[in-house]
C-alpha cells in the first residue's frame, strides 16, 4: 500500500497563499479557520539573513500522537496512503488531539468536531491529488507515494537537501521541505 506524502520546494514558494485559498474553497473551511497556512521563517543576523517560506498543514505523521490519544477512534489512519483523518460523527470534541499535535495543525470546527487537512482524501479517492498541489502557480508542491522509489516525491527527496518540521518531537512527519 502506498504511503502518501508531500514535498514542498521552499526555493520556489513565494507565499502567494493560493494553496490556502483553494483549500478553504475545496473543503468548505469556515471563515476564521485554516487547514493550511503560510509561514515565513527568518533566521540569522543582519545582513546575513535567511528566509524560508513554507506552506504548512497537518504532517500526516507516521507516528501520530493525535490518533493515539483519541478516546473514541474518531482520529485514525486511513487505509488509503496512511492519511490521518477524523470521522466527524465519532468525535466528541475533547480537544486532546489538538493538544497532542506539536504542529498545532488541528482546530475545532464550528460544528464541534476536530478538523484538519485530509490531503483532500475525497479527491485522492478519485485518483486526483490534493487541491493545494493542483493550483500552486510556482509548481513548488509535489504529492505522491513516498514508498515508491520511482515517484516524483521520492526522486526529489533523493536528489535535494530537505528537512521536515520538528523531527525531534518523534512524530515522523510526512511533509518535507526542499532547501
Amino acid at each position: 500500500m502506498a504511503r502518501f506524502g508531500m514535498v514542498i520546494d521552499t526555493k520556489k514558494c513565494v507565499g502567494c497563499m493560493d494553496c490556502v485559498v483553494v483549500c478553504k474553497t475545496e473543503n468548505n473551511v469556515p471563515e476564521g479557520f485554516n487547514r493550511d497556512w503560510i509561514v515565513q521563517d527568518v533566521r540569522g543576523k543582519n545582513p546575513h539573513l535567511q528566509m524560508e517560506i513554507r506552506s504548512e498543514r497537518c504532517n500526516h505523521c507516521d507516528n501520530p500522537p493525535c490518533v493515539y490519544c483519541c478516546p473514541t477512534g474518531a482520529s485514525h489512519v486511513h487505509d488509503l496512503g496512511g492519511v490521518v483523518i477524523v470521522t466527524h460523527d465519532m468525535c466528541i470534541g475533547c480537544k486532546a488531539c489538538i493538544a497532542a499535535c506539536p504542529y498545532d495543525a488541528r482546530f475545532i470546527h464550528p460544528e464541534g468536531y476536530a478538523d484538519k487537512c485530509t490531503f483532500c482524501i475525497h479527491r485522492v479517492e478519485k485518483g486526483m491529488g490534493p487541491a493545494c498541489v493542483s493550483v500552486c502557480p510556482t509548481h513548488c508542491m509535489f504529492w505522491g507515494a513516498l514508498d515508491d522509489p520511482n515517484s516524483e516525491v521520492s526522486k526529489l527527496l533523493d536528489s535535494r537537501k530537505h528537512h521536515a518540521l520538528i523531527p525531534e518531537a518523534g512524530t515522523k512527519p510526512q511533509i518535507f521541505y526542499l532547501v
Binding site: 497563499m17 515565513q40 521563517d41 533566521r43 540569522g44 480537544k95 489538538i98 498545532d104 482546530f107 475545532i108
Partner: peptide, 21 residues
Amino acid sequence: MNEYTTTRHNEMIDPSLHIWG
C-alpha cells in the same frame, strides 16, 4: 535572530494554545 511569522490565526490555537478553560 529567529523571526517566525504565520498567516494562521485559528480560534483557540493562535497565538498560543488555549483549548482548555
